[in-house]
Design a protein around this nucleic acid. Structure first.
Length: 232
DNA sequence: GCGACAG
DNA sequence: ATCTTGTCGC
């Protein structure tokens, strides 16, 4: 992704929870849930970790070949942490660092996988949806736990899934990405449909619970990369 | 009023 | 998310 001139970022945290929530409602209105992504050539995965007991926010972005899922580039961004974790306002805490790492990638991805919720959120704007609306890029949220919503039992086989409902609406899917592991919570972030999101995530799940884009970003963001880059 | 609550 | 080693189960 080239030096992007005007990529709007969340305003500095001022402690005003009510205003942040109001902004989420505005941005949620811009979310598009229709499949509208280009032929997939490049994928990206982003995730966040912390250093100094939370003082530093460390974001990682990984670029992958969509066909082979092989990593092509990785970027890390470190920023002073501006606000505490508040359920429902996660994106305001993590997005600044994520956008910096994403913007530093050598190419603009066709689709971004984000560790967290898409529209499966109290106001329809989880971090994946927030990122999508702000960057204009197609995005999907892949979370390890539910924030809101309910669902029936999920089958035991890879690929089995059930709808995630919130306030009478389908907002995502609970997907078994691999046998004998807890299912993932998948929800569209932007420019991706409710049916396509789980399909795209599953296509990126090889031998682990998490899809490659998010799994690789997670390794780097959480300092588990064991000494260095993905390219030995 | 009492829980629940992505990372 | 993070603090943290070995250990039990598939």
């Amino acid at each position: 992704m080239n030096p992007t001139p005007s990529m709007p970022v969340p305003p500095p945290w001022d402690g005003d929870v009510a205003r942040a929530r109001a902004l989420q409602l505005e941005l949620a209105a811009a979310v598009r849930l229709r499949d509208d992504y280009p032929p997939l050539r490049r994928l990206a995965g982003v995730d966040v970790g912390f250093e100094d007991g939370g003082a530093i926010t460390r974001a990682a972005a990984v670029l992958l070949d969509a066909r082979t899922l092989a990593p092509l580039a990785e970027r890390v961004a470190r920023l002073p942490t501006r606000m505490p974790y508040i359920p429902g306002l996660l994106s305001f805490r993590e997005l600044p660092a994520v956008l910096e790492a994403l913007g530093a990638l050598p190419e603009t991805p066709d689709l971004v996988f984000v560790d967290g919720q898409g529209i499966a959120h109290p106001r329809g704007l989880g971090i994946a949806a927030h990122l999508g609306v702000i960057t204009g890029l197609p995005a999907i949220g892949v979370a390890k736990k539910i924030l809101v919503g309910t669902h029936g039992e999920v089958g035991p086989r890879r690929g089995d899934r059930v709808e995630l409902r919130y306030r009478g609406k389908v907002v995502g899917a609970v997907l078994r990405s691999k046998e004998k592991v807890r299912p993932l919570v998948v929800s569209p972030g932007h420019r991706v449909g409710l049916e396509s999101a789980p399909e795209l995530v599953l296509a990126c799940c090889t031998r682990y619970r998490l899809p490659e884009p998010t799994r690789l970003a997670d390794r780097i963001a959480s300092r588990r990369d064991r000494g260095g880059s993905l390219f030995p």
